[in-house]
Nucleic acid binder design. Sequence first.
DNA 1: TCTACTACTTAGCGTTACTATGTACTAGTA
DNA 2: TACTAGTACATAGTAACGCTAAGTAGTAGA
Lengths: 105, 105
Amino acid sequence: MTEMLKGTLEGIVLALLTGSPAYGYEITTLLRAQGFTEIAEGTVYALLVRIEQKGLVDVEKRPSEKGPPRKVYTLNARGEKELDEFWNTWSFLSERLEQLRKGGK
Amino acid sequence: MTEMLKGTLEGIVLALLTGSPAYGYEITTLLRAQGFTEIAEGTVYALLVRIEQKGLVDVEKRPSEKGPPRKVYTLNARGEKELDEFWNTWSFLSERLEQLRKGGK
DNA sequence: TCTACTACTTAGCGTTACTATGTACTAGTA
DNA sequence: TACTAGTACATAGTAACGCTAAGTAGTAGA
């Protein structure tokens, strides 16, 4: 699983951010709720740093009632474009794999 | 693309080997014919070394009319089991992704 | 002889997810 | 007060894997 997540996890997080901004801890729990139970916290935070440095998201710091301030991530135009490309790549791969599964060499 | 291939490429190659054995050069051209045009030769050979060391394939050396001897790889029982697990992981990931694409958080 | 195609090998690199650990803030409780 | 648990983020080090680049070796045809 770990290896298969490489590359796709970024797309998954970008997809999670479409429509509604979110912060790291929230994203981690979201992922776990969706079945990615073994995602490490550190993995998510490192990924968020990466997509921020690539300029795919805008970041805003907001106070929390329950702990340290949150870093809220919002998908921006660059991020949407990147997500588009992700879906293209995914579609290509997905189609190839489905063909292979059916035995179509 | 490169990152998304990590982990899946091994599954793709194992899938290609089901039913009919093949050798490295052949696998490379097969992959390219299927749209993976940018797969590097070195990548394939390195992967073959790996799956051989993991014991997922049996290897036999056969002379070629057109060049150096070929190393023909055949999927064995271990390999089939691994391929099964690959399809399970793939299915899980694929379903999650399709849900996300539809906007289902 | 030179080129092109076939066929395999390997050293070094970059990216990414994981492990492990640490910091910091709040609230509840013994 | 001290302790625990939940919330929230950060980071140093590691392993896996695909890519780049370069090489070796065999055959055939110009």
